[in-house]
């Protein structure tokens, strides 16, 4: 799941060139990797790709800080 998300973020959402490849532990929010609109796009992608709905109350830092956080969240939702 991580690779798929990393691929999508790297190819579709980056505002600026990244110095290194994106890693699952990179802070997506605190390091300027994703802005608020990038985050909305990512959530839309997750909803279509994984055929699920991310309710607004789940769109929080604890679930979306890193790719790893997102994967954990998705795993929990789908189990």
């Amino acid at each position: 799941m991580n690779e798929k998300l990393i691929k999508y973020i790297s190819e579709q959402l980056l505002n600026n060139e990244l110095e290194d490849d994106l890693e699952a532990e990179d802070d997506l929010l605190g390091d300027g990797i994703l802005d608020s609109l990038g985050m909305m796009k990512l959530i839309l992608y997750i909803e279509t790709e994984y055929e699920m709905k991310v309710p607004p109350q789940d769109m929080i830092i604890e679930n979306f800080m890193t790719v790893q956080h997102i994967s954990n969240y998705l795993a929990k939702q789908r189990s």
């Binding site: 802070d27 997506l28 929010l29 605190g30 390091d31 300027g32 994703l34 802005d35 608020s36 990038g38 985050m39 607004p56 109350q57 769109m59 929080i60 830092i61 979306f64 800080m65």
Partner: peptide, 14 residues
Amino acid sequence: IPDAPISLPVSLGA
């Protein structure tokens, strides 16, 4: 406001 909530309105609202 730290960077993270800037990108997540729900966290920002909280």
